[in-house]
Design a protein around this nucleic acid. Structure first.
Lengths: 102, 102
DNA sequence: GGAAGGTATGTCAGTGCTGACATACTCGCA
DNA sequence: TGCGAGTATGTCAGCACTGACATACCTTCC
């Protein structure tokens, strides 16, 4: 958020804080969530590039549409394990995963 | 493995194959294991640099000595989740994780 | 040899993740 | 407005992961 906007909001009586602070996440927890979000976005980019629906992707991953949706949304019930394994299944290499994370 | 050495071994009657082939791992599975190994090594490097024992590290991670040993050995019962969360707890940033993986 | 400090391996009860299903939401189009 | 395709969200039985414990396996030193 731009600091100018932050100032305006605070003047108007809003308390501005990061999602992490709001949710009471520690630095590590926040970083962990960010990492999952990054992987989820990576997965969605791959899917949309291939013009697939979540359902079609689910078939390739031997999973379900709902789980794909949760992966892309970095749902709390989705592990980094699942995200990484999914990307690898789709042909990503370690370097690609690293780039998605960094 | 250098192809010259491979040749020599095969001439000598050995069948040379990667661990992946030997264990019947698919390409993705192999990549996944490699990735875990890389993270485990990263964890061990961090620990030895700090001159800590596995037991001491376990305390910081709120885990146990045996699990630390398994993490460093990329044991099948250790998830990428656990490895990543551990590294983050020790102060690694996303970029560090990415470098460890790549 | 054997004691001590460190590391590896096996096991298990409790917890968390997973695929699957059902259902709700969203958006474009007729 | 209503419909269809796609996406999001809630729930749950079954399986995988986790910390903890016990114990075995090294090295190093005496």
């Amino acid at each position: 958020m731009k600091s100018t906007k932050k100032q305006r909001l605070e003047v108007a009586g809003w308390r501005v804080s990061s999602a992490a602070t709001f949710l009471g996440l520690s630095a590590e927890e926040a970083a962990f969530v960010e990492l999952k979000v990054a992987l989820g976005q990576s997965l969605r980019r791959w899917r949309t590039r291939q013009k697939l629906t979540q359902g079609e992707l689910a078939v390739r991953l031997q999973s379900s549409q709902s789980r794909v949706a949760k992966m892309e949304a970095a749902d709390p019930t989705v592990s980094v394990d699942l995200l990484v394994r999914s990307l690898l299944k789709l042909g990503a290499r370690r370097k690609d995963i690293a780039r998605a994370i960094a």
